[in-house]
Nucleic acid binder design. Structure first.
Lengths: 356, 356
DNA sequence: AGCAGTTTTGCATTCGTATGCAATATGGGT
DNA sequence: ACCCATATTGCATACGAATGCAAAACTGCT
């Protein structure tokens, strides 16, 4: 039964023969900017359509040494922030005529196989949005001369490009907001302690609180994981000396924390407890949660990411570039309102403390 | 500054020279099952490691006529069900030594560019999980001799493989459940009316209700879209003759509907209104929602998808195969409990009506 | 028509790997 | 030591498209 047979695949030579021209002519027809007369081009196009020809991207890649593929490494997609990023990346990359090779669903630890595959496919660029394996992997890739952008994280040595928001300032703003709300006891539920975003958010929060004279922070670790965040919330909020203001390192965890606080512990939000999250992700906007949250400008972040990649690919220069964007503290119902500082901008409520 | 230069890239010939063997030997070393002596293999491996050689997957694809790439077409990822699918697909495909090329973030209408790219990259298989462009695209791909699996949808003519759950039976079970709960007025919020899943779910629901003597169904369209579902809910639930039992075509919309019902219209769930969803997706399990929902066995669905693809790829036979799996009605708190039929299985509550 | 200048075309080669085939090396048995 | 069977190796070619170069075909001008 002719088993194991693949699709035949129309080649440029077949089209050439059909059109009565050389293979080069076919190639030039499909190469923008190549020298080809309108007449032959038309002949080729006709023949191509008849035969259903499409240039073989694999063969093209081999000779041009460009795969037009960008690898995106995202260990897990549970946090809706990342699917959103993925979607936007897909949109922009396709505009630039690039494809998106996705690496996901693997446990964070084993970076080596991932790296191997990246190398084997000769991807033109890499977006690293995976929490933990960033440092090792990014250095390897950069060393191999492939443009890399760390998305929403950085490494100590800033040898590799990154796109982030001002996490430290964000943490600080959260602190200012909660202080302005008149809170007294402050808590923090941490993300992955090793991640740069978490460190920066916490550092800013701590600074902001310290400036207002609050040095004690009730602390638990949630590791950006829903179940762990629930456990952390249970532990922190069931004690009598629980905080009345809680900053959760991202919305993905904040949602879990709110569920525990309300439905397991019977707390009212924001009466008994104010909660502020980070990312301003989908569920934060759902009325059941209404999470007051530091937003990350997702579209602009993705745009910056793609820009950096395109620059580096076309220039061949792999000079690290760091794009740091601003977020806003979007005010909703999960935290008590301060007496002042909340302003309305295009229908959204933002916390903008009067400066100085 | 040498601009435009790419990574050099170590070739098998370089490794061969270094190891003092032929290029063929290098190739065979990296081809499982090829004839090569342990001794030369070791020499090659050593040289390869020294030079940092990795086989060029592009060149390999060209000659083997296998890209080891599976294309996944998913128009939008807003519904968490799909990111979950993606993650699981990534996991299984990598195990089979395949890569995942993702097409997302485009508007559903323009299928042609997508198809073009699929063809250009000579993908070995395609998973179509996009709601609307399925029929056109799938036929084209199938015609091109590429294995295609429709994920969670079908087309009329079943010329192309698919993996689904028993949506009709699911709809029927929902009806039985709501009838058993003693409800009197039944509503339905529809997904995309043109989608097979929606049609089947609704058909089953209707049948089930009809059997219990209920022929009137209050109907609105949500198009699987959050905002539209909200609008539909407002319209349907603000009228005095609103339903007391509502089947929403998927959980993604059900969440929106619950928010509107509770917070905009002040309805109590399930006292004033029972809601049942479909998919049993993440947020359905969150205590704020606790949606009673028909589950889709995601892991088994993805497994079936990958199996079909692998079979067809290795056999070269592209015979349509339809895998239809069973779901369960997971009982939570969004709908009134019937007096009987709810059983507990591994800690989850399932509705299993005593059979006739 | 004839010529210089410009486009357009085809030839031949290249990218990096896999593989059929023939040549060579290895091993075992006597 | 010799022969045959088997395992390993290298040679040469193929995959499909892009591209430098030289030949060929136009163009406009006198």
């Amino acid at each position: 039964m002719d088993s194991g047979v693949k699709k035949p695949g129309v080649t440029s030579s077949q089209v050439a023969r059909r059109a009565g021209v050389s293979q080069s002519a076919v190639s030039r027809t499909f190469t923008p900017g190549a020298s080809i007369s309108p007449k032959t081009r038309a002949k080729v196009m006709a023949a191509a359509k008849e035969l259903g020809y499409r240039p073989n991207a694999i063969a093209r890649s081999l000779i041009t040494n460009r795969s037009r593929i960008i690898a995106v490494v995202m260990a897990y997609l549970e946090n809706l922030f990342y699917p959103d990023v993925l979607e936007e990346l897909g949109r922009l990359l396709v505009k630039e005529n690039y494809r998106l090779l996705l690496f996901t669903g693997f446990m964070d630890r084993d970076s080596d196989p991932v790296f191997d595959q990246l190398m084997q496919y000769r991807v033109d660029g890499i977006v690293l949005a995976s929490t933990s394996l960033s440092s090792e992997l990014s250095e390897e890739c950069a060393a191999a001369g492939i443009p890399v952008v760390l998305f929403n994280r950085t490494t100590e040595r800033d040898a590799v490009s990154s796109v982030t928001t001002r996490n430290r300032e964000g943490g600080r703003r959260v602190a200012e907001f909660l202080v302005a709300g008149g809170h007294k006891r402050f808590g923090y539920i941490s993300g992955l302690e090793s991640s740069s975003t978490n460190r920066d958010r916490f550092a800013g929060y701590k600074e902001g609180l310290a400036e207002a004279g609050h040095t004690e922070i009730i602390y638990e670790v949630g590791n950006y994981d829903r179940a762990e965040a629930e456990a952390a919330a249970r532990k922190m909020l069931s004690k009598p000396d629980r905080p009345d203001a809680l900053f959760v390192a991202n919305d993905h965890m904040a949602v879990a924390v709110m569920d525990v606080a309300r439905h397991e512990l019977g707390l009212s939000i924001p009466e008994d407890l104010s909660i502020v999250g980070y990312d301003d992700v989908g569920p934060a906007r759902w009325t059941s949660y209404g999470i007051t949250s530091m937003s990350q400008p997702l579209k602009r972040m993705v745009e910056a990411t793609v820009n950096i990649l395109m620059d580096q690919i076309s220039s061949g220069e792999i000079e690290a570039e760091h794009r740091i964007l601003n977020g806003e503290l979007v005010v909703r119902t999960s935290a008590r309102l301060p007496k002042s500082g909340v302003v309305e901008v295009d229908g959204r409520r933002i916390f903008k403390p009067a400066k100085g």
